[in-house]
Design a protein around this nucleic acid. Sequence first.
DNA 1: CTTATTGTATTATTTAGATAATACAATTTA
DNA 2: TAAATTGTATTATCTAAATAATACAATAAG
Lengths: 122, 122
Amino acid sequence: MPSSLDNDRPIYLQLMERIRLDIIAGVYKPGDKLPSVRDLALDAAVNPNTMQKALSELEREGLVYSQRTSGRFITEDKNMLKQLKTNLAEEQIRQFFEKMKQLGFTGSETLALIENVLKEEM
Amino acid sequence: MPSSLDNDRPIYLQLMERIRLDIIAGVYKPGDKLPSVRDLALDAAVNPNTMQKALSELEREGLVYSQRTSGRFITEDKNMLKQLKTNLAEEQIRQFFEKMKQLGFTGSETLALIENVLKEEM
DNA sequence: CTTATTGTATTATTTAGATAATACAATTTA
DNA sequence: TAAATTGTATTATCTAAATAATACAATAAG
C-alpha cells in the first residue's frame, strides 16, 4: 500500500486531499508546474490512472489546469486559494467540535482539553 | 443512500463508528440489549449482512458480546468504556491539530480561531 | 409443544475502485 | 527534423464492498 494512504477510503480522494493541502500550504505555489502524471504516480506509488483521476477532479475544482502537452499548473487565483484555506479550516473546526460533542464533551470541556494539550507542547 | 452515511468510506466502518459513539455517549448503556441485527439494519437502511459485519467487528473490539439466541449486549466493563472515550478524544484532538498544521496554522493560531468560534456560539 | 426471534452462515450478483497495458495527438526538447 | 514528454483515452481484469435471498440451529416467548 502506498505510504500515508489507508484502505478505508478511495485512493484518488486521498490523493486529492494531499495535493490540495500541498497547494494551500504552498508546497506548490500559484503558477507552478506540477510533475507529470506519471511522475506523481511513481512518487505516490499508485497507478497512473488513479493519479490522473485525482488530478482531473482537482481540475474540476479549479485548483489546477492543464495545458495539453506542456503540463499541468497550479491556479494563479490567489484569492481562491486564500478562500479555500479559510473554508477548509472552518470545516475542520466544525467537524472537530461535532465529533467531540458526539463523544460527550461540551464546547468548553473541549476547549479546556485543547489548552492542556497546547501547554504540554510548549 | 442511507442517511448520514457517505460514499467515501465502507458503510460497515461508518456503522461501527456510529454505534461505537452511541455506546460511549450512553445512548446504549452497559449491559443494554441491542436491537436485533435485522432491526438495526432496517433503521440504518442497510443490508442485514452489512450490519452483521459492523457488529461482529465491534465484538472483536470487545464493545459488545452476543448471546447466541437471546441477542447482543453492550459490554459491562465501564472502565473499558471510559478508557475508550479518553482515547478517542485524544485521537480527535491530535488529528485535528495535524490537519490544521497541514493547512498552515500553528497551534496558537488554531487556538485563536477556536476561541472565536466558541465566542460566536455563546 | 409450537412458533417466533435470535445470531450466524452461505452462495450469488452487482458495483466502484484500482490496476494493467497500451495507444494517440500535440508539443516541447534535443 | 526526430525523439521524448505531455495529457488523455480505451479496454480489460481484479478485488472489496454491498446487496440479495436464503437457510439453519438454538432458545425465548406464547
